[in-house]
Design a protein around this nucleic acid. Structure first.
Length: 913
RNA sequence: AGGCCCGUAGCUCAGUUGGUUAGAGCGCUUCCUUGACACGGAAGAGGUCGAUGGUUCGAGUCCAUUCGGGCCUACCA
């Protein structure tokens, strides 16, 4: 690869090229390791995207964070497996295909089950593939050889196995209960799939005549149409108002049906009239009350939420039309006695937004308490750690209040429930279709038409993707997976279910002890958990902090951003903004800034190549240290190692933003702004001594550049690969920078003295530049400066680096003087030196006075604070010595600064009023 | 109804366990096309950390109250 890079970085073609290279070379494929493997292991399961369409910004954040962590581990020598796949997403995908059919004027029933399912497979083949292509574009370093789909045959077999085992263990049952029913999707959905929305509604009061007395009993309801299915009125036993009515009956208006007045805790005397209508077939609370009192369950609606024959005259009406008619009739007949505004938490289908109907139906359920117990315990005991920690409590709260899980769906797309119905009424749950009925030996068996909730199969993935139910080497090595990175939204849907299933089905499992120890989990007792750690990341919002949604039209398409700024810049943005626990307000200006960063790196590379090629085109990064006692060389290595230390620590704690910002600051601030500037003259040095000096500078430059690329690679994989390959002229020692070692801090190279010295020089240079600006010295004109310092070390430091000062501050000559310069206004002072720019132009006295005065105020304010503290016995006795020492040092510094500042003000004289 | 999060420079956000001078990017002002980079360089302006009270030698950081914004969980008609 030639070293003559174009002047500016164009990510498009370069990123596409490397994405393809990584995939084709199978760089991230991890075959099952044979016994004897000793490397630490890192396993990450990709939360499988739905095959419903395109990746969104939330995915991109999720994938970026995963890829950063994965690449980081891989480069640190871990046996790193990132397992990708896609989810069939039952209800969501079915809905997309139904929508597609609708444009052709068809419904799924027009096609029939088989043809419809085939149609969904077609969809899956099309969009499932598109999502995988997008992942490649993001740079996801997954093992493509292990890619799965939740309806693959092996995974489907595992699903049946799980179902049958749970059934055998009595943890799956079938029964007629009230479930959340979506009349549009025509299926039951779980509690989690219902989203509540506060709506302004009405609370109606209806009076029911008590049979055999002229009295009425008034009930309140927000859903008057359900009265058609009332089978009782409940009052509280202790409620004095109704004591005389216990055991009596009321005549249900409109239906003219006699129903009993019962006493039940359902009725809260504090609420409304204290009497409540009981509709066991249409309300979960009423359903329970109905069971307690053996009440009939009158189902008045069909699967579309239209009134059925049980609703008498109202049959055929939609639930809303029925409501209007019922109200109208009640009003006419004098039964409607009250109508108040009332806020209702309306439950809507998470997928389609249709108002959910509590519906009595026969469904399959998982008895959840036994599973939840272990799932609670492993998190409480730290067997699984959740980061950030506050999610741990949220998880535990949820686990404590968990209800049985309705797992059957009246859909066509998904894993069919492995149960077969015989005409005799027997239901056989089995791994494969049974030949005949176990009870009556009849052979006309029909498989249950329902499919399983999508989350049933995805909850099994941590072990089913590793070959379960067989016991495999993969499980010994890769289970428990190390980490799960996911969004808060699916903490209950998915994370909780994986924990429950994992702990249940992998009970007794043990990870290969050698690998477990090498990976740092020796102290963890329980290897049944699906993962050791969970990192919950935030939401990506739009620039106005609004949640992105299609209906609001504020969705930012990651591919659009990528196209405009590059994948690396987009990834960097997401990483740099991802402070744990805080939502991200995505801002394009940030991304634009990081595109500039990529360009900066690019141009630093051009600079390096330009110089290296002139010296020796065959120069390559060396692993050994470059021998040099020059301050800037020692300093930059110190800064680099400090940055490497911080970055590694930040990544360890998932502080992505710190890691990203730290690299940015090092590379731009230290490396480009200072180091490159400092060595420029050495790179152009003449003569034999000069050649040697150039060589040292080049080698140091190249080594640091190489290390910086490796440090940055997990966040910006593409540009780092491109330049790294160029550094090795297309013939690198490894196939990819992704396989090169990640920089670890070498503490020996962190040199505080060098950093302090450099800070003084930087201070001096900035002071001079500042004075030049204040004095309005022409950019091109070099000026002499005078320096006073009472410290010989500083004087010698400056003398040793005289050349750097002259070049970087545009100085003609440096002279040291014997006396403090602090009384001249054209002087900048620090506690350790004064520097004056010798220049004939007059300073702006008024502006200078203002600046000095403000500075003096600052100094005095701070001195006041310090003095008060230092005079305080409590502070001296309680504060750590380091803090006191620091404050004392600072205070004496301030004293010096104050007097210097005062001198200058005196010199300027009083303001001419 | 319960729980959680946020409020810091014009804008978008950082600010590990309370500790010396509260930071960054963008935007803004002034200057500079110098042999890596104008997607750049140099210098600068800009904040009583939502409000009040408390704990502490010391609070952006901890506690209480309050105002404003957002989110989640929930079978009270």
């Amino acid at each position: 690869m030639p070293h003559d890079l174009p002047k500016s970085y164009e990510p498009g073609a370069i990123e596409a090229r490397w994405a393809e290279y990584w995939t084709n070379e199978k760089l991230f494929s991890v075959p099952t390791p044979p016994p004897g493997e000793t490397r630490p292991v890192f396993t990450l399961l990709l939360p499988p995207p739905n095959v419903t369409g395109r990746l969104h910004m939330g995915h991109m954040l999720n994938h970026t964070q995963m890829d950063i962590i994965v690449r980081w581990h891989r480069m640190r020598g871990f046996l790193t497996l990132w397992l990708p796949g896609t989810d069939h997403a039952g209800i969501a995908t079915q809905m997309m295909v139904e929508r597609q059919l609708a444009t052709e004027g068809k419904k799924r029933r027009d096609l029939g089950r088989e043809a419809f399912v085939e149609r969904v497979w077609e969809w899956k083949r099309h969009y499932g593939g598109a999502i995988l292509d997008q992942m490649k574009r993001l740079g996801d370093s997954v093992d493509w050889d292990r890619e799965y789909f939740t309806m693959d045959e092996n995974l489907s077999r595992a699903v049946r196995e799980v179902f049958v085992r749970l059934h055998e263990q009595g943890l799956i049952y079938r029964g007629k209960y009230i479930v959340n029913w979506c009349p549009r999707c025509e299926t039951a959905i779980s509690d989690l799939e219902v989203k509540h929305e506060e709506v302004q509604g009405k609370l109606y009061e209806i009076r029911y005549p008590v049979v055999g007395s002229g009295e009425f009993i008034t009930v309140a309801t927000t859903r008057p149409e359900t009265m058609l299915g009332d089978t009782a009125v409940a009052v509280n036993e202790k409620d004095e108002r109704y004591k005389h009515l216990h055991g009596k009956k009321v005549l249900l208006p409109l239906m003219n049906r006699e129903i009993p007045i019962i006493t039940d805790e359902l009725a809260n005397p504090e609420f409304g009239t204290g009497a409540v209508k009981v509709t066991p077939a249409h309300d979960p609370n009423d359903f329970q009350a109905g069971l307690r009192h053996n009440l009939p369950q009158i189902d008045i609606m069909d699967e579309h939420a239209h009134m059925n024959q049980n609703a008498g005259a109202y049959a055929g009406l939609s639930r809303y039309a029925a409501r209007e008619r019922v109200l109208e009739d009640l009003r006419k007949q004098g039964f409607l006695v009250g109508e108040k505004d009332y806020t209702i938490a309306l439950g809507k289908c998470d997928r389609c937004g249709t108002v959910v109907e509590p519906r009595l139906s026969t469904q399959w359920f998982i008895k959840i308490k036994p599973l939840a117990e272990r799932a609670t315990e492993v998190v409480e005991s730290g067997g699984i750690t959740i980061v950030p920690e506050n999610y741990k409590q949220i998880y535990l709260n949820w686990m404590h209040n968990i209800h049985d899980w309705c797992i059957s769906r009246q859909l066509w797309w998904g894993h069919r429930i492995p149960a077969w119905h015989c005409k005799c009424g027997e239901i056989i749950v089995a791994r494969e279709a049974p030949a005949k009925c176990t009870k009556c030996a009849g052979s006309e068996l029909k498989q249950d038409t329902d499919v399983l909730d999508t989350w049933f199969s995805s909850g099994l993935l941590p072990f089913t993707t590793l070959g379960w139910p067989e016991k495999t080497r993969d499980q010994e090595v890769f289970y428990p997976t190390t980490l799960l990175i996911t969004a808060y939204e699916i903490l209950f849907f998915w994370v909780a279910r994986m924990i429950m299933f994992g702990c249940h089905f992998m009970q007794g499992h043990q990870q290969d002890p050698v690998l477990k120890k090498a990976s740092g989990w020796a102290d963890k007792k329980d290897d049944s958990v699906p993962f050791r750690q969970v990192y919950i990341h935030a939401l990506v919002r739009d620039a106005e902090r609004q949640k992105m949604s299609k209906t609001k039209g504020n969705v930012i398409d990651p591919l659009d951003i990528i196209q405009r700024f590059g994948t690396d810049a987009t990834r960097f943005t997401l990483a740099a903004m991802a402070a744990p626990g805080t939502d991200i307000a995505f801002s394009e200006s940030r991304t634009d800034g990081y595109r500039a960063f990529a360009n900066k790196i690019w141009n630093a590379a051009r600079f390096m190549f330009m110089n290296v090629d002139r010296l020796d085109p065959n120069l390559r990064p060396s692993t050994g240290l470059v021998q040099s006692d020059l301050l800037e060389d020692i300093w930059i290595r110190s800064r680099f190692n400090r940055a490497a230390k911080d970055v590694n620590e930040a990544l360890r704690d998932y502080r992505f933003h710190e890691a990203a910002n730290r690299i940015y600051d090092f590379f731009w601030g230290d490396f480009c702004d200072w180091y490159i500037e400092l060595i420029k003259n050495r790179l152009n040095a003449e003569g034999p001594a000069g050649k040697e000096s150039t060589a040292v500078a080049c080698r140091n430059l190249m080594n640091l550049f190489d290390a910086s690329l490796r440090l940055l690679h997990p966040v910006m994989p593409f540009i780092t690969e491109e330049i790294w390959q160029a550094v090795y002229d297309g013939k690198p020692p490894l196939k990819s920078i992704a396989l090169a070692p990640y920089p670890q801090a070498d503490e020996k190279q962190i040199d505080l003295a060098a950093e302090t010295s450099m800070a003084i020089l930087q201070d001096l240079i900035v002071s001079v530049r500042n004075l030049r600006a204040e004095l309005k010295v022409e950019q091109k004109q070099k000026v002499p400066i005078q320096i006073f310092t009472p410290e010989v070390e500083i004087k010698s430091l400056i003398e040793r680096n005289r050349d750097a000062v002259e070049r970087l501050a545009h100085v003609e000559s440096v002279t040291f003087v014997e006396n403090s310069l602090s009384k001249f206004a054209s002087v900048r002072s620090t506690a350790r030196f004064d520097v004056q720019v010798v220049y004939e132009k007059k300073i702006d006295v008024a502006a200078e006075r203002q600046r000095l005065t403000r500075e003096l105020e600052q100094i005095e304010k701070e001195m006041g604070n310090s003095q008060r503290q230092l005079g305080n016995q409590q502070f001296l006795s309680k504060a750590p010595a380091k803090v006191i020492e620091g404050m004392r040092a600072r205070f004496s510094e301030l004293e010096v600064l104050r007097s210097k500042n005062q001198n200058k003000l005196d010199e300027l004289g009083p303001p001419s009023s």
